[in-house]
């Protein structure tokens, strides 16, 4: 069967391709701006610096594909960090603290999920609420102080590198999780259901997909991984503070959208999101090495984000316009039998 090679697929793939091209361009830019950029030490640091964003982006990608959103992730990170500090101060061993705070992270996600699925509230509203709530809890738990005396055997995991290389320990954790989430999304019935729910929740429900249960699972997973990111953050900076990760949710969501995930659900993939995380991280790193100010960095991220939302939209409109033109001319030719 000859003929048109999968046009629609190509159109879908185009944006994702652009992300990888932009990633390469960023690396080239970084290398040209500073000789330091491509050194192992800098790349290792760059990687470590985006790990929390990268971790949270994994479950959040799945959640956004399913048509929901979670704005409270950074607050969960802060809550977990504060709780770690408080429990350590209370004399708990790290072996007990880590599972407990992970459960708390998962519970925070579960609460989001229950409010969305049981009460039928929009996730945007729910998680704006819990964004404030969880951050408030973090302040309540630790107050206006920081806990910084974590044992170095643990903080090394957050800030250290695999013996003699520039590979951060946290990268290993991330790669393992990325594989799990990638396989989950691409090759399991759950992944299929996530796309189905995001494309048409009604059809998914009519097809026997347990829409609410799956959404609840995704919110819980998002909370769990945000909690994990809280542990990573706390150990990396060897500092538990209630304001850890303030505003990080915007960076994560920016990366997910830049990675081509549709904010309306139903579309997206994990690999381009990961590329987008490193694109943003690499760009920031390169500009920092070039002594560009922080304000400028935020501005560049913002422009990229708007571009990522607008570009596919413009492409779509262009396609529709062309299709209408074609239809109109076909009608003129074929009118009156």
């Amino acid at each position: 069967m000859p003929h048109r090679r999968r046009f629609s697929l190509a159109a879908l793939a185009r944006w994702e391709l652009l992300i990888f091209v932009m990633l390469v361009a960023t690396v080239t830019l970084g290398a040209s701006l500073s000789g330091e950029f491509l050194t192992g030490a800098n790349l290792g640091f760059l990687t470590q610096d985006v790990m929390e964003i990268a971790l949270i982006a994994l479950p959040l990608t799945l959640l956004i594909i399913s048509g929901e959103i979670d704005l409270s992730v950074a607050s969960v990170l802060g809550l977990v960090s504060a709780l770690m500090g408080a429990l350590w101060n209370a004399g708990w061993p790290m072996e007990a603290i880590i599972p407990v705070v992970l459960v708390v992270g998962a519970l925070a996600g579960l609460v989001n999920g229950l409010l969305v699925t049981r009460l039928g509230l929009p996730s945007l509203a729910v998680t704006i609420g819990t964004l404030a709530l969880y951050r408030g809890l973090a302040w309540g738990i630790l107050g206006d102080k920081a806990v910084a005396n974590f044992p170095s055997s643990y903080t090394n995991l957050g800030m250290g590198y695999v013996g003699g290389t520039s590979i951060p320990y946290t990268l290993i954790l991330f790669v393992a999780l990325a594989i799990v989430f990638g396989v989950l999304l691409r090759a399991t019935p759950l992944g299929r259901s996530i796309y189905a729910i995001g494309s048409s929740e009604e059809t998914a429900f009519f097809s026997g997909i347990r829409v609410k249960r799956i959404k609840l699972l995704l919110f819980t997973l998002t909370g769990l991984v945000a909690g994990l990111a809280g542990i990573v953050w706390t150990l990396r900076f060897a500092s538990a503070r209630p304001d850890n990760g303030m505003g990080l949710e915007l960076s994560v969501i920016a990366a997910v959208l830049l990675g081509g995930v549709s904010i309306f659900g139903g579309r997206g993939a994990l690999l381009p999101v990961i590329a987008a995380v490193f694109l943003i991280g690499g760009l920031r790193n390169a500009l920092t090495l070039d002594d560009v100010s922080d304000d400028m960095l935020t501005l560049v991220t913002g422009v990229l984000l708007i571009f990522s939302v607008v570009a596919p939209n413009l492409a779509q409109r262009l396609r529709e316009l062309l299709a209408r033109r074609r239809a109109a001319s076909a009608l003129e030719l074929g009118s009156e039998p």
Binding site: R192, S199, S200, E202, T203, A204, F206, S207
Partner: peptide, 17 residues
Amino acid sequence: HQGLIMDLSVERNATMT
């Protein structure tokens, strides 16, 4: 709106259940 997911392929729709 209830039977099919129009954006998805024939295959994905047919095997959804």
